Amino acid sequence: MEKDIFLIGVGNYTEVIIELAIDCGFNIKGLYHYNQDRVGEEIMGILIVGCTEDLYSKDIKEVQFAVTMGNNKLRNEIATKLRNLGALTPNLIHPRAFISPSATLGQGCFIHLNAKISTNCKLGNDCVIDFNSLVAHHATLGDACYMSSLAMVGSYCTIGKRVLLGMNSLIIPLNLTIGDDCLIGAKSNVTKSFPEKCVLVGNPARKIKEIE
């Protein structure tokens, strides 16, 4: 695979992905912002070369992109649109992450330093597994989940789409199911299943509100 790639986004998290892409051996050809206001600027020495909307009218088949928004829904929507136009969104896997040979990953995932994806795990598209996080064996994450640093998903658990796990949060390995679009607070220990769109905090975690 050719190692040239463009990055979508110019926010603070883009800087993290710039470093990850370089660590993965990619040559970053440029950045795309959501409008033309910052074209010509540089982020960490990488030029903003255009507007994201302009890409949708170009031939981008087989061109590689990484969508760097931290917002789970937005990252997934943009990456899906690019893929539907024939673009490629390769997984960026840090050379010091561990991915089991039996694990299955979708497209457009970011796997950071010291993250571990264990035996027979399944990750959807556009997931982010941050530094020192663990997906234990036979666990499943839906599209566009974000696991912050030191977060852990226990064995046999099933996590829905676009779930955000805060720093040092834990899903206990009890065959738990977490519904789509949940937000799990930092240091929360989830000990039972919850439906979609819940904000969960505490030890044991409890629902404090629903996301509209």
Score class of each variant (00 low, 15 high):
residue 120 N to Y: 14
residue 76 N to P: 02
residue 103 A to L: 10
residue 164 L to Q: 02
residue 146 Y to R: 03
residue 184 I to V: 15
residue 58 K to A: 01
residue 159 I to F: 07
residue 182 C to T: 11
residue 85 L to A: 10
residue 140 T to C: 04
residue 196 E to C: 04
residue 81 K to W: 00
residue 193 S to V: 10
residue 151 A to F: 07
residue 153 V to E: 01
residue 145 C to E: 05
residue 150 L to M: 13
residue 87 A to Y: 09
residue 170 L to M: 12
residue 136 A to H: 14
residue 118 S to C: 14
residue 152 M to W: 02
residue 156 Y to A: 10
residue 157 C to H: 05
residue 110 F to I: 04
residue 172 I to A: 10
residue 50 G to K: 02
residue 167 M to A: 14
residue 132 N to Y: 13
residue 111 I to C: 05
residue 136 A to M: 14
residue 56 Y to H: 04
residue 176 L to I: 14
residue 102 S to M: 10
residue 179 G to S: 06
residue 147 M to E: 10
residue 99 I to L: 15
residue 143 D to S: 04
residue 131 F to S: 00
residue 131 F to N: 10
residue 178 I to T: 10
residue 118 S to G: 00
residue 157 C to G: 03
residue 120 N to P: 07
residue 192 K to E: 14
residue 186 A to Y: 01
residue 57 S to H: 12
residue 198 C to D: 00
residue 146 Y to K: 01
residue 89 T to F: 02
residue 146 Y to W: 14
residue 117 I to C: 10
residue 88 L to K: 15
residue 53 E to S: 15
residue 77 E to F: 09
residue 97 A to V: 09
residue 130 D to I: 09
residue 131 F to V: 15
residue 159 I to E: 01
residue 132 N to G: 04
residue 127 C to W: 09
residue 167 M to P: 03
residue 159 I to H: 05
residue 162 R to P: 01
residue 99 I to H: 03
residue 174 L to Q: 14
residue 99 I to P: 00
residue 139 A to D: 04
residue 110 F to D: 05
residue 105 L to W: 10
residue 197 K to G: 07
residue 89 T to Y: 02
residue 124 G to V: 01
residue 127 C to S: 05
residue 67 V to A: 05
residue 172 I to D: 05
residue 75 R to L: 04
residue 194 F to Q: 06
residue 59 D to M: 06
residue 152 M to L: 12
residue 72 N to Q: 12
residue 181 D to P: 01
residue 126 D to E: 13
residue 158 T to S: 13
residue 149 S to N: 11
residue 169 S to C: 12
residue 64 Q to S: 15
residue 184 I to M: 04
residue 98 F to Y: 15
residue 131 F to R: 11
residue 93 I to M: 04
residue 142 G to I: 05
residue 153 V to F: 04
residue 85 L to I: 07
residue 75 R to C: 06
residue 63 V to R: 10
residue 99 I to N: 07
residue 173 P to D: 00
residue 70 G to N: 01
residue 117 I to F: 00
residue 90 P to S: 07
residue 102 S to Q: 12
residue 66 A to E: 04
residue 150 L to N: 14
residue 90 P to K: 07
residue 57 S to F: 09
residue 151 A to I: 07
residue 67 V to I: 14
residue 59 D to V: 06
residue 120 N to K: 13
residue 159 I to S: 11
residue 99 I to S: 04
residue 107 Q to S: 14
residue 78 I to C: 01
residue 184 I to R: 00
residue 51 C to A: 13
residue 62 E to N: 15
residue 177 T to G: 07
residue 190 V to T: 06
residue 147 M to F: 13
residue 185 G to Y: 05
residue 134 L to T: 14
residue 114 N to I: 01
residue 145 C to N: 11
residue 141 L to C: 10
residue 143 D to A: 09
residue 98 F to L: 13
residue 134 L to H: 13
residue 95 P to L: 05
residue 126 D to C: 13
residue 140 T to E: 14
residue 142 G to A: 08
residue 182 C to F: 00
residue 143 D to P: 03
residue 142 G to V: 01
residue 136 A to Q: 15
residue 160 G to W: 03
residue 156 Y to L: 12
residue 107 Q to K: 15
residue 130 D to G: 06
residue 154 G to Y: 10
residue 126 D to K: 06
